[in-house]
Design a protein around this nucleic acid. Structure first.
Lengths: 122, 122, 122, 122
DNA sequence: GTGGTCTAGACCACT
DNA sequence: GTGGTCTAGACCACG
């Protein structure tokens, strides 16, 4: 079944991000093989070129690498993956503080709100 | 200039949310008049019916009210607005904790990350 | 008139290299505008997508940047350009020493040969 | 496995050059027999006539000679081989100085760069 | 069957 | 007119 894409960002970036999320969340461990371009294209219901573009993006960031005709693999460089995870997290934090700031809620107040519900999260 | 809408939710809800954000952020103070359906429809480049639908949604939540042919106004009931602001904030908090949790980052760690950057936010 | 491409490397890389050479040689000074994708595609007699790919490569290296719909420009960061020039030169040096080494000529002998003809070069 | 040829020069010249390189690099010593036309044609995946043409070129330069039906042999005239090696080397030197000159690097600077890395080469 | 490259042509937004 | 994105489909080299 086709994936859902929002229309405000390029599809290839959304695909790249989904793959990236799958990688940092451990779905594809370091060194493991990723789905093929064609398979992902089928799954996401987009053109193979679009998936290629997405992979190129991730290869550029160094978190995946292409082994010629064998397929694409998650990097085994755990440090790179860790850096990636950290930068994604920081991005989420900044976006959160910006969004909640527009509701006139300070970072300190946000922390308080998190304290109140944090028991619901691991 | 047409607004940008993501394709995964009804446009009228996205419009409603934007108006709601404008209200709780103080752009439209309590008791103030909102733009007309036609003006908003023009601005967002959507059908006036869609804006109408969005307004109905907000009226339903009680944060705006229609004064017949005079136009639509933000409620003067500060408590309602405050409730709305609070629920929006809580929604942001939960979504944030869910998203960052997928990066294997606990709520406590999230707080630590916020502490580190909170000086950048008011 | 169509450019000439060797068949042993991707066309988009050859285009990227030609542009890069034009930039470091000063044909396109720092901050200057580059030809448009379509114009280059016409000139090189290739598909616009191929030129796009070439530009993306250079943008990736940071020596050019895209100003939205205004066009593409050479970076004004002279240091980046200098780094680029230096790395290209080193690449030439290594390839030269490798090639001439296959003729059983040592680096020292190569230097001697250059000394003998260097008056012909500025 | 077919050889790779660039499309900007006649294939027979490219084959001639490869053979020439193999000879001056010592792969085929003075007086030794060269592979047959048919074998080379197979190896390079080209028409035997093309290889014939390449051999004629080298025969013309005097670095190989045909012994009737026995096959083709590298000349035993070491001086001819030496001349050939020298002219190939000079060609490399001139091309190197031209290329690196386009990066605004003088012959003298080129020598300096070679000095810095020459320990990596025999 | 894999990734990679390239073409042809389309649509979009305007940084 | 610009860059950017996307589709559809083709060919290649590699094992």
């Amino acid at each position: 079944m086709a994936w859902r894409f929002s229309s405000d960002r390029p599809v290839y970036l959304q695909i790249a991000q989904r793959i990236q999320e799958s990688i940092v969340s451990g779905e594809y461990p370091p060194g493991s093989q990723l789905p093929s371009v064609r398979q992902l294209a089928l799954e996401a219901a987009v053109n193979p070129n679009t998936v290629q573009h997405a992979f190129a993006e991730l290869e550029n960031e160094g978190i995946i690498l292409s082994k010629g005709t064998t397929g694409r693999f998650v990097t085994e460089d755990v440090q790179t993956l860790e850096d990636c995870r950290h930068s994604m997290a920081q991005q989420l934090v900044h976006r959160f503080l910006k969004d909640i700031g527009q509701l006139s809620i300070s970072a300190q107040q946000a922390i308080t709100m998190i304290e109140e519900v944090k028991h619901e999260y691991p």
